[in-house]
């Protein structure tokens, strides 16, 4: 069934069962997002970027968690929404090694895009910067991981699990120390990594790269 929504005073049509975020993106209404994957039963909702305001709901909500309803009235650019998005972005940048010219994702990076969209400088002034000690995790035979670029969206973990049944990549540790890890993956023969590369493609920033030799 087709539904009609009013987003930023613009009427859009979409199919039932879609998330609000997807419906907007389908209709060329951009909402910043990092962890969203289409067709996932339960959204991760972890990046806290895709906030919108919906008529009848007091506080901004992440649009990836909302199923479209007919005649929904949505605003994607209220001061409340922008405030949250900018803070989320600044927080992510405060633990990000902003060294774009030496990053392979330069000019193809979601953080850069979002920063441009939200008009936030890549080097926020008010927050101190805290980087992890490990610059490159080279333990995986085919992949390099850059913890200080990673936004922990979890797309790589999800994609890998979807493709291979189990994920070589996993979240490890907890809280501020959370990292993407490939703990003790040494048995090269059992890995499909050498000619997969899905995780690298899924990464919205430059946190994963295939090793040059492979």
């Amino acid at each position: 069934m087709m539904l009609k929504l009013l987003v930023d005073n613009q009427e859009i049509e979409t199919r039932e069962g879609k998330t609000l975020l997807q419906a907007c993106l389908d209709n060329q209404i951009y909402i910043p997002n990092l962890c969203y994957l289409e067709n996932v039963e339960r959204p991760s909702a972890s990046c806290r970027m895709c906030f919108v305001e919906i008529e009848g709901i007091k506080q901004p909500v992440p649009s990836c968690t909302v199923q479209v309803r007919d005649e929904m009235v949505v605003k994607t650019d209220t001061p409340g929404v922008r405030q949250l998005q900018r803070t989320a972005l600044r927080l992510l940048l405060s633990v990000h090694d902003v060294d774009c010219k030496n990053c392979h994702a330069n000019k193809n990076c979601e953080l850069q895009n979002i920063a441009k969209f939200l008009k936030v400088g890549l080097k926020p002034k008010r927050l101190e910067r805290y980087l992890k000690e490990t610059q490159i995790d080279e333990t995986h035979p085919f992949l390099n991981h850059y913890p200080n670029r990673c936004v922990l969206c979890g797309k790589c973990v999800h994609i890998c699990r979807g493709k291979h049944g189990q994920s070589v990549l996993t979240f490890a540790k907890r809280g501020f120390d959370t990292v993407i890890s490939t703990y003790s993956v040494t048995d090269v023969s059992s890995l499909a990594c050498s000619d997969c590369g899905s995780c690298v493609k899924a990464c919205p920033v430059g946190a994963l790269a295939l090793k040059e030799s492979s």
């Binding site: 189990q166 994920s167 990549l169 996993t170 979240f171 490890a172 890890s181 003790s184 993956v185």
Partner: peptide
């Protein structure tokens, strides 16, 4: 029957 990385995680 799961990966070690999963257990570690």
């Amino acid at each position: 029957g799961i990966l070690e990385s999963e257990v570690y995680g």
